[in-house]
């Protein structure tokens, strides 16, 4: 059970059961969808920028505990950051959960550090990164950005 608690940390379960910033975002001008066909998870990210800063971000969709908690905690982590800063955070987060030798400390990741247990579960990495990929699409000028 101790192994499982590494993955299903209390914070993760809390965000799964009570996702923050969940629902539509009126006035959002950027949207992107992430889809994991392996498990059917879908997540849509809505972003409202003020200048270059993520003024507000919310998400919708359904998914597993890891993907839902990741989405919830991503919204909290990137709100108020510049686009470039949010992208850098994604890079560090990605490194934390894919780092094969497990040396990434994630000191600068704050609460997101609870996802470090994911690296022991290669099949679940996509669950944790799904929403971040959607955020990346929404922040960039990529054509995947949907208008829904």
């Amino acid at each position: 059970m101790s192994d499982l608690r590494e993955l299903y940390q209390t914070t993760i379960l809390d965000h799964y059961k009570k996702p923050r910033n969940f629902g539509p975002l009126p006035g959002a001008e950027r949207h992107a969808e992430g889809h994991n066909p392996l498990c059917g998870d879908r997540v849509t990210v809505h972003v409202r920028l003020e200048g270059d800063v993520v003024a507000d971000v919310r998400f919708e969709g359904s998914g597993c505990a890891i993907s839902t908690a990741s989405a919830s905690m991503m919204t909290e982590a990137v709100k108020g950051r510049t686009r470039a800063d949010a992208e850098r955070l994604f890079e560090r987060f990605h490194h934390l959960i894919t780092d094969p030798d497990g040396t990434a400390q994630g000191d600068d990741l704050g609460k997101l550090e609870v996802f470090s247990g994911v690296r022991e579960y290669p099949t679940r990495i996509k669950c944790a990164t799904l929403v971040w990929h959607a955020l990346h699409s929404a922040l960039g000028d990529a054509k995947e950005v949907s208008t829904e």
Binding site: Y8, L38, C39, G40, S62, G63, C64, I66, T123, C127
Partner: peptide
């Protein structure tokens, strides 16, 4: 979610399929 069921059962040595 089924995916979480599958991961936790796997820790018990139980192999099932999750998904569509």
């Amino acid at each position: 979610h089924a995916h979480d069921v599958g991961t936790i059962l796997d820790q018990e040595g139980i192999a099932i399929r999750t998904g569509h």
